[in-house]
Amino acid sequence: MTEIVASNPEVREFKSYPPKPRKLTGSSIAILVFLTMCAAFVAIPLYVIIVTSLKDMAQIRFGDIFSLPEVWTLEPWRVAWDEVCSGVTCEGVKIGFFNSIMILIPSLILSIGLSAVTGYALALWNVKWAGTFLFILFTAAFVPFQIIMIPLIIMSGIIKVYGTVWGVAIVHAVLAMPLLTLIFRNYYKDIPSEIMNAAIMDSGSFWKIFGEIILPMSGNIMIVVLILQITSIWNDFLIGLTFGGIGTKPMTVILANSVITSRGEVTYNVDMAAALLTAIPPLLIYFVLGKFFVQGITAGAIKG
């Protein structure tokens, strides 16, 4: 009757002790000072961009970029959203915002759907040439965009998607496929082979096993990949620039056009507001889902 004698750790109560305060030594202080200075260097641009976007031009012309707004105004934000000119159209960065969303959604569905299935097939099913194919994908993930850009432009012209949001979305999905497939494959590879064997004996259906067993087990990696993809598609400039047409360019391109190639008097507060508006979606994701974000960028590291 050993069970009765044995103490039950769940029942036993432990005294709670107050946390011991750590001593603040000289080297600790030096390190914290250095880290704080570096943090200031990293944080200052964000601070400057925010305060500038809330000032009026009169104060900006006076200089002193670090000062707080004397008159707090949201006018630059309104102008940036609604009125700023990009090329010949003056309808604000909101056009780009909606274009970016229109690009984002189909390319997320396409790239993640395709890559998850491909990664699953390569990791858990016996495909003889899987090793070779993975190596090709690994190589493809590193290829500079410029080497495939011109043929992709020609091909997207042939299938009549060049210059449309669909064109940009498809190119994003194609370019993301190798890396995302590798990420999914590495995740699925760690699923115990016995679970896969059991599923093969129980069902044997490639799609049923994917839908009922594997997909429900991919929650974590899905969030990581989703964040990685949202950030990289939202922040992309080059693909949007080369594949987007008039009126279908993403937010980064609209922003660059309005800030860099604007004529007449430069309204820095509007520029900064437009830049902030563009940066807010990924920043929001970062500050809310930081843990997954770090996993995502580390997994997607090879994207550079």
Partner: peptide, 10 residues
């Protein structure tokens, strides 16, 4: 880490 969430254009 936050600068990494900011696009290079911004």
């Amino acid at each position: 880490l936050y600068p990494l969430a900011v696009s290079l254009i911004v």
